[in-house]
Amino acid sequence: MSPRLFLHLLAFEFRAQLAFRATFWINALAGFVAEFGVTWFVWSAVFRESGKEVIGGYTLDGMVLYFLSVVLLGKIVSGREFEGAISGDIYEGTLNRYLVFPAPYTGFKYAQRIGFLGTAFVQFALFGLAAILILVLPPGNVTWASVGMAAVTTAAASVLYFLVDNIIQYVAFWADNVWSLDVAKRFVTMLLGGYMIPLSVFPGPARGVLEVLPFRYFFEFPARVLLGEIAPGEWAKGLALMAAWGTAAWVAGRLLWRRGLLRYTGVGI
């Protein structure tokens, strides 16, 4: 796909996102306040009631900063609202028009997804800054270097998430509705990816398994890179594992896509 077409699609989707501006920002603000607020209350209660100063290697301020990073970076990585776009095309038969376009379908959808995420970048900057100022959070070990490393990691995590998500989306060739499967995936990735609880709080044996699964690379890894908790060597190793999981997901996705296209009738609902 040509970079020009990619950018055109991206910009088009970004503009479409802002069609209902007031509703969009009300939803975005409520979503952030509720999600981050609940986490803040939960962990404040845990620290208060346990009497501990440090849990899973974090003080309360450190824990709050971790969740702030996870919630905001998670929006960029997962693009939750975009989920279901591919299965929708398959179910409704609108995949037909993409198949005759002179551009690969996956590239087309990825460009749309990035455009869809444009607003998540704005939210990251606005809400992140507001939360830090309101809660007077210390910056931790965040440096310009960690910000740069986090930008690379977040971009890689976004691609990995898209490739893993595609596997579920392509199930729509066999099952009419994969919405439930999509939501089930979200529950699992949120728990096992460190979105609900930092992985360092999990019991030791579980932590060992979670370190090698792809889920932590969606949420926990980019957040910890941003917070300066990951050394360059460990970062490189993490990126290599992401590449390995991404390749595996891409191969699985291609297989499902090819087999699925053989079943696809293009009739839709």
């Binding site: 009631e49 099952a175 609880i197």
Partner: peptide, 25 residues
């Protein structure tokens, strides 16, 4: 898929509380 989704939702929440209660009474 619906049954699977809700079963996972239940499991995820129970696991969440179980992990939290490793740190607090």
């Amino acid at each position: 898929f619906r049954v699977l989704m809700d079963a996972l939702w239940y499991a995820v929440h129970l696991a969440f509380f179980a992990v939290i209660f490793r740190e607090t009474h």
